[in-house]
Amino acid sequence: MVDYSENLIEIRDLMYSRGARVIFKDMNLTIKRGEVTALMGPSGTGKTTLLRLITRQLIPQQGAIFVNGVDIASLNQRDLYSLRQRFGMLFQNGALLTDINVFENVAFPLREHTKLSNRLIRHVVLTKLHAVGLRGAADMMPAELSGGMARRVALARAMVMDPDILIYDEPFVGLDPISMGVIVRLVRRMNDALGITSIIVSHDVAEVSTVADRSYLISDGKVAASGSPDELSAAKSELVRQFMHGMADGPVAFHFEAPDYAEQLLGRDSE
C-alpha cells in the first residue's frame, strides 16, 4: 500500500480510560512520515499506553487512530497482522523469547513470516546483530544478557523485517554512555538512510533532543506542547520549562497526593 500523504499516523479526539481513571481525553496528535517523533512526559502520563493504542494492542473508547489513512479499529485480524508486519517495536524490557537463543530471537520474525533459506536468514540476522554490536553474542541465551544487551538484541529483532515504522519504548534506559551514543546514532541513521518513521517514548530529555525532529509533551491526558526540541527548550510555558529543565517545583507535583507530612509523622497513628 503506497501512500504519499505526509501524515503517517493521526490520532483524532482520542479518549481512553482504565476503570474510573481517564488516561487520555480529546487527544490529537500527528506523526509525520520519515521523521523521528518523540513522545515525552512525566511518569504515569500513559506514554506506553499510547504506544499500545497506536499498535492496537488496546482499543480507544472514543476517537480514532489512523495509520496510513486507515482507521486501525476497523481492521480485522488478518489486516491488522499485515499492518503489524510493517511495525517494529522495541519493548521497555526487551521482551526477548527466553526459550531460544539470541540468534533465534532475531531470526524469529523471518522464520514466522518468510520462506527464506537458512543461509539467507543467517546473513540477515548477523548483519542486524552486527549493527547493534552483538554479533558475538549470537549463541547466548537471553538470561545471560545484561539489561542493556537484551534491549540491543530486541532492537536488532525489531529491525530485522525492515519495517516502515519503528517504535521505541524507553530505548535509552539502562544503557551505558557508549551504547547509548551508538544507539542514538543508529536510530537517526536508520531513519535517514532507510526512510523509516520512528516513534520514541522517553523522558530522557537530553538524548531525545539530539535525535528527535519533533517532540510531543504529554501531560494530563493531552498534548501539552509540541515542536522541535529547540522550540520546546525555549518554550515559555511553566510545565514545559519544568519538564525540559528537570525542576522539582512547577505545575507537575513531584509528590504523589498524600496527607500532610508533619501531621502524619506526629499524629496519633504514628505511635
Partner: peptide, 25 residues
C-alpha cells in the same frame, strides 16, 4: 508458569507485535 511468565515479561505482546498469534504459536 511458563506461559504466565511469558505474559508477564511482554513476550506474548511482543509476538502480537511481530504479527504472530501467540495462541497459535
Amino acid at each position: 508458569s511458563e506461559i504466565g511468565l511469558m505474559k508477564a515479561t511482554d513476550q506474548l505482546s511482543a509476538m502480537e507485535m511481530m504479527a504472530v498469534n501467540p495462541v497459535r504459536r
